[in-house]
Design a protein around this nucleic acid. Structure first.
Lengths: 150, 150
DNA sequence: GATTACGATGCAATATTATTGCACAAGCCC
DNA sequence: GGGCTTGTGCAATAATATTGCATCGTAATC
């Protein structure tokens, strides 16, 4: 993991559709060396996967929201059960168990408020283990990378 | 945007490194047709970009945390200024202005607590416009897709 | 109902790109 | 220095993407 690897990772996090020859030129290597480095990064699990990022608005997911959740019962079983419920929902993009004033943080990608309402019904109101939840609707997205600057 | 497009998008969100022939077989199309669909999806902006997702732990970003921020002054200028500060930080993965009990939600990818401390110093304590901030450290990640199920 | 126009499809040819074998050079340990 | 490992570039090869073209199905128009 030297300087060139870092450079490659930064480039690939921005655009992984470029040709290998292109990348090689930018980092100052021959295509074959460059390819071998990238393969090493993939096989070593440094690069977890290559994915397509969709434009949420163009596929009808215009609303984004954070929801923080307080559970009533905090045992591992109860936490696990709630997380299972949450991850099963297509609208739930991320679900994390956290420390702090709440127990779970969810990120939602929604079509409209109706979908949100339905989701709440399933996830919060029916489930007796949710003590309280706080919704934060996104007004503006200033940054949204899964990128890790190296 | 028919059934096949949806299928392609779902597959590409999971793994965009597959060969076109592979994808074509899975959705039941010839390679050429499949390729033309994918190109249309890219050119139409449905597919925003293709990126490499790194394994945070393998590049030394072992801590993940959410921080919700309350600002003192809520004008557009002040909001904008804070978001600019935040997005400039490499450790800040996402930054959103939101409605609700707080004004901004940040997602952080951190090396260690020292980095967190330094970040707080720059972003929260020095900046007089932050009234309060709440840190939620991630214990467990149950789901973390940027994927949008279609 | 026939006809036209349009878009999507598959096949085959071609162009691009990834991949591998190999020889060489740099760094490192003994 | 000698042997070892690791990374490199070049050139040949394999794999893959891309394009041109004929065809098919569908829907709109007359």
């Amino acid at each position: 993991m030297d300087r060139i690897d870092h450079k490659l990772l930064n480039l690939l996090q921005r655009d992984a559709a470029r040709t290998n020859a292109d990348l090689a030129a930018e980092v100052g290597l021959s295509p074959s060396s460059c390819l071998r480095r990238i393969r090493r990064l993939r096989e070593g699990g440094i690069i977890d996967r290559i994915v397509a990022i969709l434009n949420p608005a163009k596929v009808g997911r215009v609303l984004k929201a954070w929801v923080t959740v307080e559970l009533k019962l905090h045992g591992d079983q109860h936490m696990r059960r709630f997380l299972t419920l949450a991850t099963a929902e297509p609208a739930v993009a991320t679900a994390h168990a956290v420390t702090g004033s709440v127990d779970v943080v969810l990120m939602l990608h929604l079509r409209d408020m109706e979908e949100f309402d339905a989701l709440c019904e399933r996830l919060f109101r029916d489930n007796t283990n949710v003590a309280r939840f706080y919704t934060m609707t996104v007004i503006r997205t200033a940054k949204e990378d899964m990128t890790i600057q190296l």
